[in-house]
């Protein structure tokens, strides 16, 4: 299924992303092209401020697209209503939940929102999907904790569980590894890898952990000033994409070790 060409889930051509201000459009990043197939895990890397979050928010329909075409499951993003998109695509954002008083169980259950009735009561089917989301992220022992009692790593897993409960084919994650130690970074990425390969989820995550992303991603989207590359990690390395990601006087990419080294 993975290499089936017909299963393109997200397709982006000639995207310009940025902000619309009163006077003019502020383009953060332009000329982005990629197409992501079902079940692929895609790492999105680039320096701070290059437009990774902007791209993710644009894909999630939270921010208007300046130029180009995004299609989700073959449909143009602009023609998909917010409630329809909610069953195609779920997000894990950098912001913490506004209410710190939510319990983990309540938070994960909120993922069922696009499918519940007008007061949000959960059917047995909803419960089952919530339970699956909880068990695949292994957060059973946290269920009755409140958000403010969770560590960063636990909160990240809970937010991923909420996205899973939304049960969408696509999951977008904005820097899910930030603030985590190396063990938790690895375990979050492993979890994403498992969800992509076992559950056939299409996952796009932005990260600053380029070394880890190279090891775990099926393909990577590398955003640099003026250019965006989309390919498998090995191809990107041989193309030398990572070499000029950062100014070379302090840090450089070692193509044999597949990681950055200090100078």
């Amino acid at each position: 299924m993975k290499n089936n060409k017909e299963n393109i889930v997200i397709e982006a051509s000639c995207l310009n992303v940025g902000y619309i201000t009163k006077k003019k459009n502020l383009v953060i990043s332009e000329g982005i092209n990629f197409s992501i197939k079902q079940g692929e895990l895609i790492g999105l890397v680039g320096t701070n401020g290059i437009g990774k979050s902007t791209l993710l928010r644009t894909l999630a329909g939270m921010q208007p697209l300046l130029e180009g075409v995004i299609s989700i499951n073959g449909k143009t993003l602009n023609n998909i209503s917010a409630s329809e998109l909610a069953s195609d695509l779920s997000v894990v954002l950098t912001e913490t939940p506004a209410s710190q008083n939510l319990s983990v169980l309540e938070l994960v259950s909120l993922g069922r929102h696009p499918y519940t009735n007008w007061v949000g009561s959960l059917s047995e089917n909803d419960q089952e999907i919530i339970n699956t989301a909880i068990s695949s992220t292994k957060i059973e022992e946290l269920l009755h904790k409140k958000c403010y009692e969770l560590s960063d790593g636990q909160l990240q897993k809970v937010l991923i569980a909420r996205a899973l409960a939304q049960n969408t084919p696509i999951i977008l994650l904005d820097e899910p590894t930030t603030h985590l130690d190396i063990f938790h970074r690895a375990s979050v990425l492993k979890l994403l890898k498992k969800l992509a390969s076992k559950n056939e989820k299409t996952i796009l995550f932005s990260t600053h952990e380029i070394d880890l992303a190279i090891q775990v991603s099926d393909k990577m989207l590398v955003m640099t000033k003026g250019n965006t590359f989309f390919n498998t990690p090995d191809n990107l390395i041989s193309q030398g994409c990572f070499n000029d990601l950062f100014p070379e006087e302090i840090i450089s990419f070692d193509t044999h070790l597949k990681r950055f080294v200090l100078k």
Partner: peptide, 10 residues
């Protein structure tokens, strides 16, 4: 969950 999450849930 915040405005962005709410929007993402339709």
């Amino acid at each position: 969950l915040g405005e962005n999450y709410a929007r993402s849930m339709g």
